[in-house]
Design a protein around this nucleic acid. Sequence first.
DNA 1: CAGCAGCGGTCGCGCATAAT
DNA 2: ATTATGCGCGACCGCTGCTG
Length: 435
Amino acid sequence: MKAKVSNLTSLLLTIVDNRGKTVPISESGFPLIATNCIKHSSIYPTSENVRYVDDKTKKNWFRAHPKPNDIIFVNRGTPGRVCLVPDPVPFCVAQDMMGFRCDPEKIDFQYLFAVLRSDYIQKKIENFHVGLVIPHFKKGDLDNITIPRLASREEELAVGEIYLTLSKKIELNNCLNAQLEAMAKTLYDYWFVQFDFPFDFAQGKPAATGKPYKSSGGKMVYNPELKREIPEGWSVKNLNNCVDTILDHRGKTPKKLAGEWCNDSDGIIAISAKNIKNGKLVNLDSANKVNNELFNKWMPDKLIEGDILMTSEAPAGEFYFILGETKYCMSQRVFAIRANLSVIFPSVLYFELSKGNGLSQILSSLSGSTVFGIRQDVLREIKVLVPEIYLQELFNNILLPQLRKIEVIDQETKCLAEIRDWLLPMLMNGQVTVK
DNA sequence: CAGCAGCGGTCGCGCATAAT
DNA sequence: ATTATGCGCGACCGCTGCTG
């Protein structure tokens, strides 16, 4: 039986298109999103690097604005990436993308959205790339994109809804984690930046049930190294004096170790700077891998729980706290900082470096001509605020379970995404049907 | 010879303009 | 006016070759 297909353009009522002209930007106003906001990791556009347009521009400048449930399609850069437009519409769209409005008589947007995100369509779109330097998808080629159709609109809607339900659960998880992370940061700020950690003044020591230290008049002492007051009894040390070791395998390549990258699914992931972003490991699918033999040669000293991964350049100063899975190979541009447990808890050091006094020092210590980075000897000189050990323990007891929970939720999210992307093609070709 | 700093090249993005 | 593509830059990537 010949599979049913529809021409993409025949399914659309309108195409919102503001390509070819540059939107006048203002300091504030209504958000304007660019192609970098359209990612398959999110149903709706993200708001990274958003710019703004004023009211007048919003009203008069655009040819058209997207409406809720339109599908935003990227034309240039990574052509074919799509996101849905939420209700109400919280942005205008800049150049290099188009908004598809489905004809409800002909197709449900949920289904078209899922299909457009499938590997099948994404690969098709790749074949139409033009442009010598930057891949570009021509509007005219939309006519060449055919959308596979199922036996009935009900089935199509069900497929679209499965895709969206899984995607929404993934977003919910991400949202939950963002909140957990924000809570952790708030606690850190409250205790170690504002110094309002709980303190039992009668006993003269930190206690979970105590009063906020600084605002209750706890004694502060001026510290010349940090150039500000810190609680009495705390110290400031060079990072060098807070670590057991700093693992550094930058510059190692498989060739040098008489091996090669291995693409087996059971290979060990080699993490480079590009894989660490905002406290998470990212894009691990595209990371290089090594086999066990090479791994042992490369990393005689393995990573352990509590190690802090930090990028050294391009960009410098991204962090990841290792919990749970530790079997990673350290590739280019990554240090692993291992806390000296008699001085500082790893969780405290992680927050101090990535959120507290560390990051600004790291960023101001960068050097280099083409690529900016930090040298290991400079990194070791970074000043670290070391709280009283008992307070560190209190903090760690609260934070560690929370960080673990975040890790577990991230794993679940990853799993859901795998299921979704594995299921979609089978739903599309009718191998699996929804009843 | 191992460790590691940083170089040269590519990619993708925002924007502008050439082509139609 | 609309559509296609060139330009320049910063982010990023893999690797080379210097140095102790």
